[in-house]
Amino acid sequence: MKAAVVGLGDMGSGLALNLIKAGFETWGFDIDQKRMASFSEFGGTPAENLFELGRNVDAAFVMVMTGAQAKEVIFGKGGLVEAMRRGGIILITATIKPHELEEIAEGLKSTGLDLVDTPVSGGFPGAQSGTLTMMAAAPSDILDRAAPVMEAVSAKIHRVGSAPGQGQTVKACLQTVIGSIFAANFEACVLAAKAGISGQVIHDVFTTSGAGCGVTKAALENIIDRKFEGTGSHISTMHKDLTISLDLAQQMTVPLHMAAQAMQVFHAGKIKYPNGDNWVCTRVIEEIVGVELHRDGARAIR
C-alpha cells in the first residue's frame, strides 16, 4: 500500500513522517516549497503536482485548511479524482464543515474511489508523534482496508459512524469543549496574575486537579513560558474550527453558550495577533488588565 499526504504543514508533516516510519512509500505535495524540501529530507517522495501524486498511491490523506481547498485537491483539474485508480482511498483528516464532507462524498459516488471522513485531534505534538485520535466515519469494509495507514499515524481510531459527515460532526462537538477549556484557562491566568500568584503555582494546581487535562496543560505551559508563536497551534485553526461548530449549531438550532463566548476570545486574539498561536489570546486580556503571568510570578505591563 502506497500512501500520500496533501498538505505538509504542522499536521500533515507529522502524518507523512509517521507513514514513512511505518515503512510506507509516502508521496507528498504542498504549494510551499520549503515544506516540500523538509518532506524530502526525512524520506518522502515529493510530487511535482497532484496528478503525479494520485497516480502513484493507493491512499491519500488530505490535510488542508478548508473545505474549498479539499474540494479543489480532489475535484480540481489534475486532482485526485482524475489521477487515482479505482479502489483508491481518500482520507480527509482536515477539519471542515460536515455538509462540505457530504458534498465531497456525493461527488465521489461514480468515481470508484472510497472516502474516509476522519478528522483528528491531538494537535502538533500528536501529529508528530503519531499519537493522534481519529474520528472515522465510513462503511466498515473501507475502514478495514484503510486501517494500516490510519494506525500508522494515530494512537486511537474511533469508528464514529458509517455516513459521510459524521466524523466532522463529532469533531465539531469536540472543538466546542476544547475551545471553551482554552478560553477559561486564558482568563484564569490573567486573574491569577492580577492577584500576584505565580504561573508555576497555577500550573501545578490546575494540572493535578479535576481540571487537569492535556488541553489545560498545553495552554498553561505555553502561557507561563510566554510562548505565543511557533508552537504548532496557530490561532487561525481553532478560530476556523469554532466557526464550524457554531455554523453546525445554527443549522441544528442548538444554543452553544460557552463555545460562542470562546469564539469571541479567539476572535479578539486573531484580530490583535494574527500570527500568534492559541495562547496569544491571553495577551489580549493581559493588556486590558495591565499584568501578565510568568512561570516565576506576575509582572506589570509597562
Rank of each mutant, 00 (worst) to 15 (best):
L108F: 06
S110A: 05
S129F: 05
G87R: 14
M135T: 11
L132K: 07
R86N: 14
T131D: 11
E100I: 02
D144R: 04
L80H: 04
A136V: 07
I96R: 04
K97E: 08
G88R: 09
T95F: 11
V116A: 01
E102T: 03
I96D: 02
G79K: 04
M84G: 08
A136C: 14
L101C: 07
G123T: 11
E106P: 02
M134R: 07
G107F: 08
I142T: 13
L113S: 05
G88S: 06
L101H: 02
K109L: 07
G126K: 12
V120G: 12
L113P: 03
P139T: 07
P139F: 11
I92H: 06
I104P: 06
K77T: 05
R145E: 01
V149F: 00
E103T: 13
L91G: 03
I89M: 14
F124A: 13
Q128D: 15
G130C: 13
E82T: 08
L91V: 15
E151G: 00
A147F: 01
G87H: 06
A105C: 09
I89V: 14
E82I: 07
L113N: 05
I96N: 02
G107H: 05
T93L: 03
A83S: 10
K109D: 07
Q128Y: 12
E151S: 00
E106A: 08
A137Y: 06
H99F: 05
G87Q: 09
L115P: 13
L108W: 02
E103A: 11
I142W: 03
S121A: 15
R85M: 10
P98S: 10
D141G: 02
S140Y: 03
A83T: 05
H99S: 01
T131F: 13
Q128I: 15
R85I: 12
S110R: 07
T133F: 15
G107V: 13
T118G: 01
L80V: 09
G87N: 11
P125M: 13
L101T: 10
L132Y: 13
R145I: 00
T118M: 08
D114I: 13
A137N: 05
S110K: 14
G87V: 15
E100D: 11
I92V: 15
P125Q: 09
A94P: 03
D117Y: 02
A136H: 13
L143P: 00
L108P: 04
L80R: 09
A147L: 01
F124I: 07
P119Y: 04
A83D: 08
L91I: 13
G76P: 10
T118A: 10
T95E: 05
I92M: 14
G78F: 02
E100Y: 00
M150N: 00
A137M: 07
G79L: 06
V149N: 00
K97T: 06
R145V: 01
E103W: 01
V81N: 05
P139A: 09
L113D: 05
A127P: 03
G123E: 11
L115E: 14
V116I: 09
V116T: 03
E151L: 00
L91Y: 08
L132V: 14
R86G: 12
T118N: 07
T111N: 11
P139L: 06
